[in-house]
Amino acid sequence: MSGLEGLLVVIGLTAMTLLSRGLFFLSEREIPLPPWLEPGLRVAPLAALGAVVAPEILLDQGRLVSTWKDPRLWAAAAGAAWFFWRRGILGTIVCGMAVLLALRFGLGW
């Protein structure tokens, strides 16, 4: 990839990330959304995050994980369990990573 193309990619990605983050609050005017859609949009942030997270946990090289000996499954389960027990995101991360590293280095998964 030439320098110019690289520059275009960086400018394009920067502009697109900026616009997508602010799309609905950068404009002065209300961007009309159909009223019937509004109750559905309440779940959209959750759905968007879930859509990003689920494949990271459940897929391996684009295929559904077929063994229970995948440390990511247990790490995610441990992290979620911590969250609903203690309600802390730092604990979710620490607990999940502890399980992940323990299984990877302790059991060699």
Binding site: V43, L46, A47, A48, V53, A80, I93, M97
Partner: peptide
């Protein structure tokens, strides 16, 4: 990924959001 998972858990409020998450993830 675990940080985002924590975010997802934070946004889980009721049965409707659980349904939405299950559908989105699948």
């Amino acid at each position: 990924t675990l940080a985002l998972l924590g975010m997802v858990c934070t946004l889980l409020k009721d049965r409707a959001s659980l349904v939405a998450l299950a559908v989105a993830a699948s």
